[in-house]
Design a protein around this nucleic acid. Structure first.
Lengths: 111, 111
DNA sequence: CTTATAATTGAATAATTTTTCAACTGTTCA
DNA sequence: TGAACAGTTGAAAAATTATTCAATTATAAG
């Protein structure tokens, strides 16, 4: 019984030190953006220069639709933004952190 | 036709500047580790202190089996390690980058 | 006005991932 | 030895995510 109390104490002590569930949720939503190779490639492309949807599709050799869907995901996460130029839409990075996060991840991976 | 050539040039110019597919793959595998709330919480817990599997399950209010499966994923990615202590297994972080990556992500999220 | 092009969208399908459940291994201790 | 406990494992089920396909919008050009 004393053990149960001790266990309860441990769990609540640690729980109190954890970020709120909402923060953890947002954190994993952020990392999710980099957790898919297609999205990671799109972000790397946009790091090199702003691009139209069709250009990204050509570079990655994927359908325009698939790229557009992923761009929407990235847009929703506010990592990229698209600006209409006539018939085309030019996409660019919309967040300074993107470059740093990718860079840090690449450093880790390339060791 | 000249357009086709220009397009080809663009795509290969950008492609050449992208990291290898394998690097991109590893990069997204790394970020995938942080891209699930359960794994993110486990890592945050282990940042506070080393813990047994059952303790993590209690803290997160999840089954031991579910936690064990996720620990295996994190172990495979070499982000955590488990050391047997009698009947129990004590887990700890196995990678210095983990803390920095989480920290950076949290900074971004908490703004 | 009609046609062609660029991109978006929604629904269906395909693929992947997470959790559950039951069975199993290894360790302690009575 | 055997009962109890901690954790792992594999397969199935549940949930989520990515891609495809067809239809649609918006703009430009003949």
């Amino acid at each position: 019984m004393a053990d149960d109390l001790k266990k309860l104490e441990l769990t609540s002590t640690i729980r109190n030190k954890l970020p709120d569930d909402e923060v953890i949720y947002n954190l994993s939503e952020l990392f999710k953006m980099f957790a898919d190779p297609t999205r990671a490639k799109i972000l790397k492309c946009l790091q090199i220069r702003d691009l139209y949807v069709g250009e990204i599709a050509d570079i990655l050799n994927m359908s325009i639709s698939a790229i557009s869907h992923q761009l929407r995901v990235l847009r929703t996460a506010k990592l990229v933004k698209g600006i209409k130029e006539g018939k085309e839409v030019k996409y660019s990075l919309d967040d300074d952190h993107v470059t740093k996060i990718l860079e840090y991840g690449l450093t880790h991976v390339e060791e």
